[in-house]
Computed example of a mutant assay.
Amino acid sequence: MTIYTPLSLAQSLLRCPSVTPEEGGALAFIEGVLREAGFEVHRPVFSEPGTPDVENLYARSGSGRPYLLFAGHTDVVPPGDRARWRHDPFGGEIDGGELHGRGAVDMKGGIACMMAAALAFIRERPDFPGSIGFLITGDEEGPAVNGTVKLLDWAKARGERFDACILGEPTNPERLGDMIKIGRRGSLTGHVTVEGKQGHVAYPHLADNPIPHLLRLLGALVAKPLDSGTAHFDASNLEVTTVDVGNPASNVIPAAARATFNIRFNDLWTPESLEGEIARRLREAAGNAVRYTLTMEPTNAVAFLTEPNDFVRFVADAVEAETGIRPKLSTTGGTSDARFIVRHCPVVEFGLVGQTMHQVDERVAVADLDRLAAIYRKVLEAYFPA
């Protein structure tokens, strides 16, 4: 059996141009490595009208319980202007002790560390009691429609049941060991349109300017905090992201004004209860004087929490043992595929340092790859004691 290092695996993955939704050879590479190690591997492709087909990967070693799942994504965001990169974004080059390339931290580097840890563990303990799996998508950076959510349903239909999952997103803000994510806030986007009456600015009595009305409604949305947060979550926050009139003339009162807002909400809310609160605030502010419409976009990003339990402790203990840092348990940041996984089993997120993710010259310290693989290995040893 070939011996792989975290660095060699990461370099091979970085050299695959798997910009969403292209597979780029990344999943094929993972399939070959895992099949050689004895994993049963599947490559389902999922489709949805209006979205690109997406290739995915599911692999399992073992047949018993408990079942520990590693999850992640091989798709990456576009590199942008390649001339601005110091190294080829798909070259996997090493410079000054750092591995450069798109996906180095988000999150091909994390997948490489998961694979290296699992392969070494299985090589040394081929008769371990339980199962280790990989659930890898190519749709995390895109619509997130034909990836993890469908792959989980596909696995469930096959009778697969998971006991715990590590998602290898880059969770650490400054140094490896800083932070474990045990939950995420939800995301909900809404649109408010206020109808007025177009007219000449010199004759305002013949028109109805929608802009002051819209400002009044937006003021009502942000005047009072949605909540004060919880033991594990920051307070929910509403941010107005656009205000649009589309009026090219300075002497015309516009006919309508529109605004978009996004709410990152904690586990005190569901999308339905939050929509009800937004509708109530707008209704009270508008009274009978403002004609408006409210539309809320569908969302699959709901708030969730993995309560600190033995599995969270296994991960935290492994991080501390390898780095000397007791990681903070956090629910900060944006959304991730953990929101889908939590429907099937407890999930925690721990990966590399995310300072350069999505940036020009994305890169990871080679030493961090080795340390992250060692952390994952310690989790496996704790989860499957000899």
Rank of each mutant, 00 (worst) to 15 (best):
A164W: 01
G147F: 09
N146M: 07
G199A: 06
A144T: 00
T293V: 08
G183Q: 03
A235L: 05
R84P: 04
C113I: 04
N237Y: 10
P78A: 14
R161Y: 08
S47T: 15
P204L: 06
V201C: 15
G142Y: 09
T332H: 12
F134V: 05
A259I: 10
A374S: 15
Q359N: 13
V353G: 07
G246Y: 14
W154S: 04
R280M: 11
H358V: 00
T335G: 11
D88I: 03
G133W: 02
R343E: 15
R175Y: 06
F29S: 00
H232R: 07
R84M: 14
V347I: 14
K150F: 01
F233A: 05
F90K: 03
P17H: 12
A207R: 08
V348Y: 10
S250M: 11
A120V: 00
P6R: 13
A373T: 07
I94S: 07
G80R: 11
V315T: 13
N209E: 03
L176F: 07
L352I: 07
L352H: 07
T260P: 00
A144H: 01
A202Q: 12
V192D: 10
A316K: 05
A220K: 10
P21C: 09
Q198H: 06
V192C: 13
T20R: 01
G168H: 02
A112M: 10
C165E: 02
F46A: 04
T331E: 10
D88C: 06
E272A: 14
A256L: 09
G324D: 05
D178W: 02
F261L: 06
D317H: 11
A289C: 00
E239F: 02
T2Y: 11
I325A: 13
G147A: 09
G62C: 02
T241M: 08
A257F: 03
R65T: 10
A207P: 04
D53E: 14
T331P: 08
R82V: 15
A10Q: 08
E55I: 01
T331V: 07
V222H: 00
S63N: 14
P308V: 03
L34Q: 00
V41Y: 14
E22F: 11
D127H: 14
N172R: 11
F350C: 08
H191V: 13
I375L: 03
L352F: 05
L274C: 10
T295L: 08
L218S: 02
P44M: 08
A318N: 03
A164Y: 04
V201H: 12
I278E: 00
R35S: 11
E40C: 10
T189L: 05
V145C: 05
F265W: 05
K150E: 08
G159R: 13
T270G: 09
T20P: 04
I111E: 02
V348Q: 14
R216L: 13
